[in-house]
Design a protein around this nucleic acid. Structure first.
Lengths: 205, 205
DNA sequence: TCACTTGCTGACCCATGGGTCATTAACTAT
DNA sequence: ATAGTTAATGACCCATGGGTCAGCAAGTGA
């Protein structure tokens, strides 16, 4: 009795395909990845892939959606369930979270957003709304909370939560491009966060 | 007497072609740019382009080489000809220099390095040696000089000149991707530099 | 078991674009 | 002048890979 040549599993296919695509894109980037290759990795024919995703671009968008957004959800969940002071939160859970990013598969998606973003304005809008602005917003809340309860003074950090994100983006890219020459990204990120907290706690306008 | 159909200008062609390629790459990215298009912009036939550059990849490398390296030379020249204190230098010429980068054509090359770099390891090596390590080295000298002459205390900045570069890379990318939502990059960069200088001047280990 | 739906296949199509080369014409030297 | 050199052309080649579709077979229900 021979194994069936294939099995019909309508429910699982999309996820299997996006996972395969994620791996492939991560290894080779978007344009160097062949649709055939993705199909092969997913153990599926190219034709089937085109049944679930209208174009290669579509597939790409699905990958971004399904892998990056959960990562941000993770962060906001941590915030909501935390009773720590702002400083404790930044030095604890926040630092733990962002230190995992450089070197993780997520970093590749960040690179893909940089390379492919300008060609997909609607994707950038989506990414802005669901990832970047939510992330910056979360940081803003933490900082504001710290100022309001007297932990921190007012400073330029109020205006630029970006200052907390910078070292993460930088580390992600540095590790990706110059792995051999890369500084200890954990320490770099810690240094910046420590620096910002010191600054917010000290005497400044 | 008719205009000649073309003129032989062996000397000028390479530069004209790399300039055209720079523009084209800047607008469309590497893989979306057609060799034909570059040739047309340079007012030249595709065949001629292949006389001066063996492959499209070759052309890309030439573009990076001829546009990014001079930018770093500019920076090191400023340093060598400056008699300012470290703080004055950082707040003056350094800040002026890096503030011009976001929004300039150079920022597109940074994006291209990020997208195409991983596919061209030798290009990354070149870039590291001629741009990144030279830039970080220059910053290191400034910081070290400041520490030696008592302007600055020892701090984590000694170890991470990267802290000065972070906001620049970040601003470049942010403006490129989310122009509409982009904060005032001049202020962001100034904030970080000011923050670092304050930190170096204060009491820290 | 037999007709029917539909998930799935893989051979095929064809636009695209990197790269070539036989030919042409602008310079150069004698 | 004129023969020789080579910058420059552009029509052509062909591998590549995104996208299609006629047909096949796994599941389904009567």
């Amino acid at each position: 009795m021979p194994e069936p040549r294939f099995r019909r599993r309508k429910e699982d296919r999309p996820q299997e395909i996006t996972e395969a695509a994620f791996e492939a894109f991560a290894e080779k980037g978007y344009s160097a990845t062949r649709v055939d290759e993705v199909a092969k990795r997913a153990g599926v024919s190219k034709g089937l892939l085109y049944l679930y995703f209208k174009t290669k671009e579509d597939l790409f968008k699905a990958v971004i959606r399904s892998f990056v957004v959960p990562k941000i959800d993770e962060l906001t969940t941590i915030i909501d369930n935390s009773e720590l002071s702002s400083e404790e939160f930044l030095r604890g859970p926040f630092l733990d979270f962002v230190k995992t990013l450089p070197g993780s598969p997520i970093s590749i998606l960040i690179r893909l957003m940089i390379s492919e973003g300008p060609k997909h304005p609607d994707l950038l809008d989506f990414y802005w709304e669901n990832v970047v602005s939510r992330g910056l917003g979360a940081l803003n809340i933490i900082v504001k909370r710290g100022v309001e309860n007297g932990e921190f003074k007012h400073s330029c950090v109020d205006e630029f939560p970006h200052l907390f994100v910078m070292p993460v983006v930088f580390s992600v890219l540095f590790k990706l491009l110059f792995e051999k020459q890369c500084p200890d990204t954990d320490k770099l990120i810690e240094a910046q966060v420590g620096l910002l907290i010191d600054h917010m706690k000290g005497e400044h306008s």
